[in-house]
Design a protein around this nucleic acid. Structure first.
Length: 321
DNA sequence: TAAATTTGACCCGG
DNA sequence: CCGGGTCAAATTTA
């Protein structure tokens, strides 16, 4: 389905949802506001696309990579949202990054479970945050993010012409993920990911509202672990942190290994260190979208299915670095 | 007191 | 020369 049509239908659907739930929403102004934001976001994007010459009907060359989401949304629209609604309540959409809308969902039976589905120039973006207390498959930290693999030879940041420095000795893959930022406390605190990190720098980045923090593995000295990560709040979405992982953990943390004695984060390195990113499991975008949208039109897909799907994926592939 | 964090200076690729 | 990445001394924290 052409993207503009998807947006049009989706925006209409959101508006209709508000109409249908107006009595309830009147008692929940915050949700109403978010829903309105979502509608505004969808139609803003639609307007943006239309103003750039995208037609309501007809093909879009842009969608090659992301037709899956189009198909997913199409399926969702066809079923009135039922195929997805079983597990998550599609809540609203909001304009963020790169003018693409995001779709927000909340678990109906688990209020702290949140799903964010969006698009980036590099493909589909999916975030699942919060811990699914029902099935307890959410993993430590409860955040599983669809990472965006970026080859080291191309940082993948289309909007930035820089950030290609110091690449001589790190031919490693770079992984960029986005996670929901903490809502309170230290808002720049990077998400728990099973490793212990030491902050070694922070810098103001040109054209970025928020500084970028630099972390290296706490065990860098003892194990010469080259893993590093950068954490930066997104310009257009301060509630999201972009975490860039560089290098692979070589530290085999054992009970005798030094651990971070101070600080409140990172307490689980020992059982998880396998040289990869235990919480941020890789799963091809299409699979994730299919898992969310197309895994049976009548049965509940359940968030646990998504996680098990991700686990399978993680165990069979992507695990070679 | 030791370890983490902050922050200004420096390094270095483009 | 610019600016992102890193270093390391100073500072903070538990």
């Amino acid at each position: 389905m052409e993207e503009t049509m998807v947006l049009m239908l989706y925006g209409s659907k959101l508006a209709k949802d508000i109409e249908e739930n107006l009595p309830n929403l009147c008692n929940q102004p915050d949700i109403l506001v978010k829903s309105c934001d979502g509608i505004i976001g969808v139609f803003s994007n639609l307007k943006e696309l239309l103003s750039h010459g995208h037609m309501i009907s007809g093909g879009s060359h842009e969608l090659q990579q992301t037709d899956n989401i189009g198909a997913g949304i199409q399926e969702w629209l066809k079923t009135g949202g039922n195929c997805y609604h079983q597990a998550m309540d599609l809540h609203n959409a909001q304009t963020v990054l790169g003018n693409y809308p995001r779709t927000y969902g909340f678990s109906e039976s688990c209020t702290n479970m949140k799903v964010v589905l969006g698009r980036q120039e590099s493909g589909l973006e999916l975030m699942i945050s919060g811990r699914n207390v029902e099935s307890s498959v959410g993993g430590i930290g409860g955040e599983i993010i669809q990472p965006v693999d970026v080859d080291a030879s191309d940082s993948g940041r289309a909007s930035s012409s820089q950030c290609k420095r110091r690449r001589k000795d790190d031919g490693h893959k770079i992984r960029v993920i986005r996670v929901a930022a903490p809502q309170m406390g230290n808002l720049d605190l990077p998400p728990e990911d099973g490793y212990t990190w030491k902050k070694y720098g922070q810098k103001e980045i040109l054209r970025s509202r928020y500084p970028r923090s630099y972390y290296c593995c706490t065990h860098q000295k003892f194990y010469k672990c080259p893993a590093k990560k950068q954490v930066q709040r997104l310009n257009h979405d301060h509630s999201t942190l972009e975490v860039t992982y560089r290098g692979v953990h070589t530290c085999q943390v054992s009970s005798t290994a030094p651990s971070a004695p101070r600080g409140t984060r990172s307490t689980t390195a020992g059982t998880l260190a396998s040289g990869h990113f235990p919480e941020y499991q890789a799963l091809p975008v299409a699979d994730m979208a299919n898992a969310m949208f197309n895994s049976g039109s009548s049965s509940s897909i359940g968030i646990e299915n998504i996680f098990s799907s991700m686990e399978d994926k993680w165990n069979t592939g992507e695990n070679k670095n």
